[in-house]
């Protein structure tokens, strides 16, 4: 078992995503919510952060993604789309939740 990390900040505004990758171990699940969803986009100046983070699973909250007009085909490969029910499942499946605000 491992931890679920939530990231709600755009990686262009704050280093929360960078921190989460630095402070998470193998098996971590990282969920992008709110403005954090911009961190799940492919082809940005920071996409490599996610693409190169091996041993971690990335998820993005669909309703937040949709609200910001980001189509699913813009996501970095391997980032999984979840709804709020999926968010709840991730909380249950992991040992604890760390909010990196």
């Amino acid at each position: 078992m491992a931890d679920l990390y939530t990231v709600n900040k755009s990686p262009f505004e704050k280093n929360s995503l960078e921190d989460v990758i630095r402070f998470s171990g193998e098996g971590a699940s990282i969920l992008f919510i709110e403005d954090g969803v911009y961190g799940a986009m492919a082809g940005t100046a920071v996409s490599d952060l996610v693409a190169n983070a091996t041993g971690r699973k990335f998820y993005v909250l669909g309703p937040d993604l949709k609200a910001r007009g980001i189509a699913e085909d813009r996501l970095i490969d391997g980032v999984e789309l979840v709804d709020y029910a999926g968010f709840v499942d991730l909380v249950v499946e992991n040992d604890k939740v760390q909010a990196w605000l």
């Binding site: 709600n8 919510i33 709110e34 403005d35 309703p63 937040d64 709804d83 709020y84 029910a85 968010f87 709840v88």
Partner: peptide
């Protein structure tokens, strides 16, 4: 948005 997120999460 935190309060919206919390609401939707709690409801789910």
């Amino acid at each position: 948005e935190a309060s919206d997120s919390a609401y939707h999460f709690t409801k789910a």
